[in-house]
């Protein structure tokens, strides 16, 4: 498991971060994803696309995470979270460019960027994975890249 973690930790974390836009949630989802991979590794049916299998597991966890969150979070809990220093520190994103990226791009754009740029999925594979037309994936990707180019330009 340690070996697998070293190889794909950035892929799994960046996808979770792109979907949630929140570092604490992304960490929790990353951890849960690896535990699920370990738990169901024997059920993996090799189709030569293990990363697609892993992302599917992660996506299910993200959906469940949202669902649980929408049911359980109330104002008191939110306040508790804010006053919890350890969580607060865990949640800070140090990289300024990444902070801009998360703020500027939509969830879908971030998702496509993470899958293509970080994990190396082809656009067609992303379209299949997310059940979206290839043209949508391409246009969102190009739009996201343009936005990011602008950020880089402004930073300089």
């Amino acid at each position: 498991m340690g070996e697998l973690y070293d190889v794909i930790k950035t892929d799994v974390f960046s996808y979770a971060l792109s979907k949630t836009g929140n570092k604490i949630d992304a960490e929790d989802i990353t951890q849960d994803t690896f535990v699920q991979i370990y738990k169901y590794a024997k059920q993996y049916q090799s189709k030569g696309k293990p990363m697609a299998w892993i992302i599917t597991i992660e996506l299910n966890l993200i959906r469940r995470h949202y669902k649980l969150k929408s049911r359980t979070v109330n104002l008191d809990e939110s306040f508790e979270n804010m006053s919890d220093n350890s969580n607060f520190e865990r949640g800070i994103i140090n990289n300024a460019f990444l902070t801009h990226l998360l703020r500027t791009l939509s969830e879908e754009e971030r998702e496509i960027i993470a899958l293509h740029v970080v994990s190396g999925f082809k656009h067609r594979e992303i379209a299949n994975l997310l059940n979206k037309p290839l043209s949508t994936v391409l246009s969102k990707y190009n739009r996201a890249i343009k936005k990011l180019q602008l950020i880089v330009k402004e930073e300089k």
């Binding site: 498991m1 930790k9 535990v35 590794a41 024997k42 460019f97 880089v152």
Partner: peptide, 27 residues
Amino acid sequence: EIVNAFKEETPDLKSKIQKECENQIQY
């Protein structure tokens, strides 16, 4: 720059995960 940004922020959860896995049953 995108890859490096994500890499930089990726936390080290290895020991936590390994500990959690030890408590898991497999299917």
